[in-house]
Amino acid sequence: MRRDTLAQILAARAEKRPVVLATNLLSGEERVIDPASADPRDPLGDAAMAAARDDKGRIVETGAGEVFLNVFNPPLRMLVVGAVHIAQPLAEMAAIAGFDVTIVDPRRAFATAARFPDVALRHDWPDDGVADFAPDHRTAIVTLTHDPKLDDAALQGALSSDCFYIGCLGSKKTHAARLERLHRAGFEAAALDRIHGPVGLAIGAKSPAEIAISILAEIVCRLRGGAL
């Protein structure tokens, strides 16, 4: 790998831009492809876009031999609504699992740097917060406040995005009431099926850390197409 290629990948990573590196496995010849704006005449453009979308590298056969496409996507993102107790272990564990975590909570006493060191905090209302965050297919959204004023606003934004996971803390009863409100707000049953509630895998979690594990496990299952 040439020095300038390495610098290009690191610059893209610092700016959280996706790039695909194409390397000829015979010669070592390489070039960086921007999957967001690949040249339509580029013979590797479509494959690079598909690799970036699937978050999965692949080998492409070309006239010059095998070319490996390695994907350097920005980190997965997680938006946590509610800077509550469970958010603390969840933010830490999610970061270890490779997520770029942002917490949104307009209640400034909750969302403090002292309680959430090294986590991006936003203090806007969750509807603005979600819209501004621009969730995409590599984003997970978890609501933890179980206050309809905060959670519902975030959920409307989440359901209008193509985020890969939506989970809501709250009992079955709380969740049923939530679905009813969202239905009245115009969301169809098929859309509401995207919501995981009560949030997390049923592992009998009790403590905030255990609940965080169950949530993160459910997110990974959704991300990787696990069997649960």
Partner: peptide, 21 residues
Amino acid sequence: MGETARENHDRVLEQAAEWQR
């Protein structure tokens, strides 16, 4: 939580660049 937990997973290219520098 600092960068240490993630270091081994995500910083391979960064480390390669540092060594080279």
